[in-house]
């Protein structure tokens, strides 16, 4: 079942075009959103939340159409995107009164546990909190009403290492029963490696560069260190990058088994095969 279904979503600004975006998020999965600054990650979330209105395309969440079932959908979404600033003069406790009022599924115990877990002082005014603390507050409010879907815009940015680890644990726990889903943007490779199942890469011009499934990456992407590189290999559709400026040379492929067979048939000896770390793939995708 798909929790989020986006089809042909586009948004035009004076200087920037986002989309068309097409993708699905399966129930129980975590999707990481990566892209350079200005590639439209925040706009992407705001489009999903109907805070920015698309010029074209459709958004379906929980099988419901976005603008028409807006309130129902939003009640089951935990959204953290640094938007609490207008509450700067309120204490965390006072902000919680807003959340508990508007979200029917608000869980006060969970909220209090999280406040303690992240060692926050409920009486502290939001405006007086540091960047990292604000992030934590945002994170806590996104989780405390037990949403079905979390949309987190760079939740770990600017957060201390200890709390980052706790956030990861909380997200893993959130995903544990396979009923809930997550979309998060991040610049941290560890978030992608340790939390996400799939990765959407946004290109600098606001398009989906790639949709990576982690298991496919593990299975199919590889770096072959080889004794020689033939012209044929260079042009092979599944060889996406070669480096022969050094010896031994290597090639990157997104179809390990195809290329392995090819190499064997050509009699080219393989010195070593490595799985490609995620960061290298993302780096490559963002460059191309």
């Amino acid at each position: 079942m798909n929790v989020v279904r986006v089809e042909g979503l586009t948004k035009h600004f004076k200087k920037f075009h986002l989309g068309p975006l097409n993708f699905k998020v399966e129930k129980g999965t975590a999707v990481g959103l990566v892209g350079s600054n200005g590639s439209g990650k925040s706009t992407f979330f705001r489009l999903l939340m109907n805070l920015v209105h698309a010029d074209g395309g459709t958004v379906e969440i929980f099988g419901k159409k976005m603008p028409s079932s807006e309130i129902e959908i939003k009640q089951s979404i935990g959204f953290a995107a640094n938007m609490l600033e207008p509450f700067y003069q309120l204490s965390i406790k006072e902000i919680s009164s807003h959340f508990s009022y508007w979200y029917p599924s608000w869980n006060q115990n969970k909220y209090e546990d999280l406040i303690n877990r992240y060692k926050l002082d409920e009486g502290e005014k939001f405006g007086k909190c540091s960047t990292g603390m604000k992030k934590k507050v945002d994170f806590i409010f996104s989780l405390s009403h037990e949403p079905e879907l979390l949309l987190l815009d760079e939740p770990t940015a600017g957060v201390d290492l200890g709390s980052q680890k706790k956030m990861k644990e909380d997200l893993i726990e959130f995903l544990e029963d396979g009923e809930k889903s997550l979309i998060m943007s991040t610049h941290l490779i560890d978030d992608l490696k340790q939390i996400c199942d799939n990765i959407i890469i946004l290109s600098p011009n606001g398009k989906v560069q790639d949709f990576l499934r982690k298991e496919e990456v593990e299975e199919n992407w590889a770096k072959f260190w080889v004794s020689e590189l033939t012209e044929e290999l260079r042009c092979h559709p599944h060889v996406i990058k070669v480096n022969d400026s050094q010896h031994p040379s290597y090639l990157l492929t997104d179809q390990k088994h195809v290329v392995e067979k090819e190499l064997r048939e050509k009699g080219i000896s393989v010195i070593s095969i490595q799985r490609l770390p995620l960061d290298e793939i993302i780096e490559f995708q963002l460059d191309s």
């Binding site: 939340m49 109907n50 805070l51 807006e70 309130i71 129902e72 939003k74 009640q75 959204f79 995107a81 938007m83 609490l84 600033e85 207008p86 509450f87 807003h98 959340f99 508007w102 979200y103």
Partner: peptide, 11 residues
């Protein structure tokens, strides 16, 4: 910004 915040909530 205040309106954006309220619109992000189920209001």
């Amino acid at each position: 910004k205040r309106m954006a915040l309220f619109r992000a909530m189920p209001i």
